[in-house]
Each structure stands twice: as structure tokens, then as C-alpha cells.
Design a protein around this nucleic acid. Structure first.
Ligand SMILES: [Mn+2]
Ligand SMILES: [Mn+2]
Ligand SMILES: [Zn+2]
Ligand SMILES: [Zn+2]
Lengths: 152, 152
DNA sequence: TGATATATGCAACAATGTTTCATTTGGTTA
DNA sequence: TAACCAAATGAAACATTGTTGCATATATCA
């Protein structure tokens, strides 16, 4: 039988040179369990109200600095968080992709396969990082609207 | 002598079907005076602490809904505000451009001439609005770093 | 099994978002 | 011009999130 790749939060943390504290393990496990974009509110809810919010704040900062997660800001200034996809346990990861957010239900997704196109900008601006968010309506919400309007 | 185009806040408001209240005139005048991207903090500072912050909050929302200004969110969830460029006083305006923000001094600029490229995304996502922010280092900050490192 | 650099938890404060509601007022009409 | 009224304002109140300082706890390593 093929050995399924086990995702061990402790090992991931150590590979990123982070102390494997219970809090970090819990946060990382939450990301691995849900495996989707999460808002701070959703994270707080999943972790339970016993989990210290300042610790979560610092944990998210630390995870981002070490390339475990990336932030996805939306047009209202709300920030969502997503795990960075890693091939195996090495440090390579790629956040340079487009994100989509449904303005109706707030579903937010990483479009990992869609790289952000490089744009030439005036030379007095030295580009470092690109953020490309597409806002719109997801399939589910679109369906509901059409159904409600009697179009289906 | 050529009659210089006078920008009258009251007329602009009325052309956008907004009551020309003293507060709105003051906010719009502030945008016209500065003629550049402003953060909420900068707006508050320019308006003075007598200006009610809830009124400012609602005024910004109203201005955005009516296409007078557009929001520019950055990767930290901070929002900057900029006047929408209008040809004359008609309602046509274009926010579909790229923005640049310096991560060192927070200078934020509208690159009006750079349209956001249209990207094909999976059909289950119905795109409505595109947000493209480029983060980097501006000329001034770049110069300071090089000077500090003795490279100039 | 210590030693220690780091992480955590709590207090405290700031900034901003958002709603409710009583009062004021800009624009319109008689 | 005076009166009317839908809309705007301002104050209060509350929530969320960001952020730092500091005392305590602990993961890791020698
Ligand atoms: Mn992503
Ligand atoms: Mn702009
Ligand atoms: Zn949706
Ligand atoms: Zn700069």
C-alpha cells in the first residue's frame, strides 16, 4: 500500500525554523484542516474563544514572514489568509497568483494556476510585489440570483 | 485671455446628484486641493479635529457610491482614497487602472494611463471589478537607501 | 537537566467600522 | 418668501482589529 504523504504541523514548523509551540501547531492545523482561505473572524471561531487573540495576531505575522501563509486583502480592507502551497517541505512557494472574491458571499479563492502578468510601470517606481484581486459573483450566488429572478 | 476651467465643488456635487452640504464641500475641496491619494488619517488631519469622523465616514461612502472617488486598498488592509478623474463634469470616469504603493514611505499613486489587463478566469467565477496594486520602492526612497549604503 | 532566547498572555491604548436616533438643513414647492 | 420634508448631520454606543510593553512560561539545545 502506498504511504500517504502525512502532513505533520510540527515538521512543517521546524522546516521553517519556527519553534513548534502548541499554539502554532493549533493554528497551522486549522489551516491544514480547512485547506481554504480564511478570514480572521473564521480563524478565531475555529480556534475557539480561549485562544488568545494577540498570540494569533503574532502567529499570523510570523507565519507570513516565514512564507507559510500569505495575506489576501480585499477592497474593503479586510484581510483573508491562505496557506502557501509548497512542493514537499522545501522553502519554495509561490504567492504570485490572482485571487477571486465573491462580493455576495465573501468566498475567497486562490487561483494558483493564474500568475499575475508582469506590467511595465514608470521607471521611477521599483516594483517588488504584485497584488491582483478580481471581485465578482461566484457560481452559487449567481445561481441564487437567477433563481430568485425566475430566470431558471 | 483664456478662461481657466474653474473647479467648483458645489457644481460637481450637484452634477452627481448630491446635496451640496458644507461638509461635503469641505471634503471635496480637500481632495481638489491636494489632488493626490490620501489616507483616512491624512484626510482627518487636513479637515481638522472639529470635523465629525462619522460624517467623514459616510461622506466617503457616498462619494464612492456616486463615483467621485475610489478606494485603494493595500496589502495591510489600509485604505487610501483618490478622486476619480472626470473629463469635464459628465459622469464618465475610469478607476480601472493600476496603483503603486511605496512600502517605505507609503506614497500611493494612481497610474491612470495603465489599464488593468483582462484575465480569463474559470467560468464559475463571474468577474466584475479588478484591483491591481504594485508594491515597491519609490524613487526617493530608493535614492535614500543607495545613499545610505554609500552606493552613490 | 539546566540555561536562555523566544513565545505567550494580559493590560492598555489607538484606529476604524458601523448602527441608532434625535436634530438640523438643503432644495423644492406653494 | 415661507413652509415642508427627505436627507444629512452629529453624538453616543459598540465592535473589530492592530499594536506595544512587560512579566511569566517554555521549547530547544548544550
Ligand atoms: Mn493565494
Ligand atoms: Mn486610482
Ligand atoms: Zn458567492
Ligand atoms: Zn517611498
Amino acid at each position: 500500500m502506498p504511504q500517504s504523504k502525512k502532513i505533520n504541523p510540527e515538521e512543517i514548523l521546524k522546516h521553517h525554523e519556527l519553534k513548534a509551540t502548541p499554539q502554532r501547531i493549533e493554528v497551522l492545523s486549522t489551516f491544514l484542516k480547512r485547506n481554504q482561505v480564511m478570514s480572521l473572524a473564521e480563524l478565531n471561531k475555529m480556534l475557539g474563544k480561549e485562544f488568545d487573540r494577540i498570540t494569533l495576531y503574532r502567529t499570523l505575522n510570523t507565519f507570513e514572514e516565514h512564507g507559510l501563509i500569505h495575506k489576501i486583502p480585499d477592497s474593503n480592507g479586510n484581510i483573508n489568509y491562505a496557506l502557501c502551497k509548497h512542493e514537499s517541505l522545501d522553502h519554495s512557494h509561490n504567492d504570485n497568483h490572482i485571487h477571486f472574491q465573491c462580493t455576495s458571499c465573501n468566498l475567497t479563492v486562490c487561483l494558483e494556476e493564474l500568475e499575475i502578468p508582469i506590467i511595465r510601470i514608470p521607471k521611477k517606481f521599483n516594483p517588488v510585489k504584485y497584488i491582483f484581486l478580481i471581485e465578482g459573483i461566484c457560481e452559487d450566488c449567481d445561481g441564487k440570483v437567477k433563481k430568485h429572478k425566475g430566470l431558471v
